[in-house]
Simulated assay, not measured.
Amino acid sequence: MTLSPLDDLPIHQAPEVMRHVATSDRNFYDRYYFNCHPGSDELMLIVGMGQYPNLGVTDAFAVVRHAHLHRVVRASRELGLDRMDTGVGPFRIEVLEGLKRLRVVLEPNEHGLSFDLTWTGAIPATLEPRHFVRWQERVIFDSVRMAQTGHWSGSIVLDSRTIPVDTWMGTRDRSWGIRPVGEPEPPGIQVKNPGTFYWLYAPMQFEDHAILCIVQEDEKGRRVLEEAVRVWSDGREEEYLGRPEYHPVYAPGTRDVVEATITIGKIEVRCTPILPVHLMVGTGYGLEPGWKHGMYQGSEPVVEGVTYTLPEDADRMWGMVDAVGRFEYDGQVGHGLFEYWALGPHPSFT
């Protein structure tokens, strides 16, 4: 065992040094996710950084959607001994005030995207339900996540154009636990998995509160995970609003959502995705065989850029969609993340 700076803090959870996690599961991860937008169809920026202690890797990405542009900058390195070091190439994340203020930086680089942004939470960080999925005897997901809506300040530089960011909106989450990461494993009996991922994740930001909503169902329409909670800026939390019911409307011949209704008890929220970002394209979430979260890219740090344009590259744009969403209920209008994916069989498609 080797010590690291974390071991000087009274935070141990197991008879191990802090750089080692309490499980030997290769798929353990610890990740940041942020999105940033002005509440319009002008631009959306998504940033992520993860550590994969049992794979010895850390990586980061940023993707921006602006007009017809889909641009990604991504970086990877060996994790090393110090898990307090969040730098990955030109990326770094600084916790300025725990659960409240963070700084997210992508230093200038050759790939045409950089930023220096400060996040301030608008509601208390909120712990979501534990996400647990066992399939064919293997635990596929066992993770927890905290979520928060808030505001951004700073600037984004895109192709030499500086875009001021002043009280832009966004959501962030921190999740850790077990989920598929790294190089593909031999499927074994998992080859029988139907491959369904029917998912809605909608953190909605209103003037003085947020609604955090999650729906996941399996191939038979059974609930795997659900959440519907209203959190007020002053810290009040309504933990049970009712069972969320999700009713999307798809563009003809596709599974692209054009509008949706979420009913939560007596609340009916009308949802409109106004700027879709294809989260899985170039970022490491799973479409490129050579670049996945936690995948070892070699002993030397790697920084890459990927640029696509629409509609020319529309055939690449599939998978999970993270859209800027417009949300309306009871005369109130808010914005936030409208994240969805409808993959594989599900009763709503029969």
Rank of each mutant, 00 (worst) to 15 (best):
H151V: 03
H151L: 06
W152I: 01
W152M: 01
W152E: 00
S153I: 06
S155H: 14
I156A: 06
V157S: 11
V157N: 09
L158M: 12
L158H: 10
D159K: 12
S160K: 13
P164R: 11
P164Y: 09
V165M: 11
W168Y: 14
W168G: 01
M169N: 00
G170C: 06
T171P: 00
R172C: 02
R172L: 03
D173Y: 02
D173H: 06
D173L: 03
R174Q: 14
S175K: 07
S175R: 07
S175L: 07
I178G: 03
I178S: 04
I178K: 08
I178W: 05
P180Y: 07
V181E: 07
V181L: 13
G182Q: 05
E183T: 15
P184R: 09
E185P: 05
P186K: 04
P186Q: 01
P187N: 12
P187W: 14
G188S: 12
G188R: 05
I189A: 15
Q190K: 10
V191P: 03
P194H: 10
T196L: 07
F197N: 13
W199C: 03
Y201V: 08
Y201I: 06
M204K: 03
M204E: 04
M204I: 06
Q205K: 02
F206K: 00
F206G: 00
F206T: 00
F206E: 00
F206V: 00
E207G: 02
D208Y: 05
D208M: 05
H209M: 04
H209T: 03
L212Y: 06
L212D: 01
C213Y: 03
I214H: 04
I214N: 02
V215C: 13
Q216C: 14
Q216P: 04
Q216H: 14
E217A: 11
E217I: 04
D218L: 09
D218T: 10
E219A: 10
E219M: 04
K220A: 13
G221H: 12
G221W: 11
R223V: 15
V224P: 08
E226D: 14
E226S: 14
E227I: 05
A228L: 14
V229R: 09
